[in-house]
């Protein structure tokens, strides 16, 4: 399974590519009033307004830095009722993908280096990666608010 690596705070996370539509550079966002703080705004993604969530705000309470390596991961959020809604996630250091021998989410929520094709090329890596579970980290009831007409 191919995993996209990125950082949340100091921890490294891995998101399976199944849900990913595209990884794009940072873009200008339109602020939306009366939305939770972690919603960075709306972006015009191929002519469609798409809500963007800043994962740094969610985990650390501070907005992501404007860096080239900070990117927007466009994902298909797996809603129970209306699948196919897309969502942008601002993530730090989203620059690397890695192959893993895992076929599904690890029970512990942690990916061990041994299951990876090659060691994570991070000098400060502790050999562990956190599995980014979209539904656990971004609960459906909180996200569905963004898609109400």
């Amino acid at each position: 399974m191919l995993l996209l690596l990125f950082k949340l705070g100091d921890g490294r996370y891995a998101l399976p590519v199944d849900h990913i539509v595209e990884v794009i550079p940072l873009v200008k966002l339109k602020k939306v009033p009366r939305t939770p703080e972690f919603v960075a705004g709306m972006m015009n993604y191929r002519g469609k307004p798409v809500p963007v969530i800043d994962l740094s705000v969610l985990s650390e309470g501070v907005p992501s830095e404007l860096k080239m390596s900070t990117r927007i991961i466009v994902v298909n959020y797996p809603f129970e009722e209306k699948p196919g809604e897309i969502l942008g996630l601002i993530a730090k250091n989203a620059t690397e993908t890695i192959k893993s021998k895992l076929e599904s989410a690890p029970a512990s929520g942690v990916v061990l280096d041994e299951t990876l094709d090659h060691a994570v090329t991070d000098l400060n890596s502790d050999g562990l990666l956190q599995w980014f579970d979209l539904k656990k980290i971004l609960p459906e009831q909180e996200i569905s608010v963004l898609f109400q007409d």
């Binding site: 550079p25 940072l26 873009v27 200008k28 830095e65 404007l66 860096k67 080239m68 390596s69 900070t70 250091n93 620059t95 690397e96």
Partner: peptide, 13 residues
């Protein structure tokens, strides 16, 4: 990767 850690300029955005 250090090169990607540069600040993203306004024009880039």
């Amino acid at each position: 990767r250090l090169l990607l850690d540069r600040e993203a300029s306004e024009e880039y955005l």
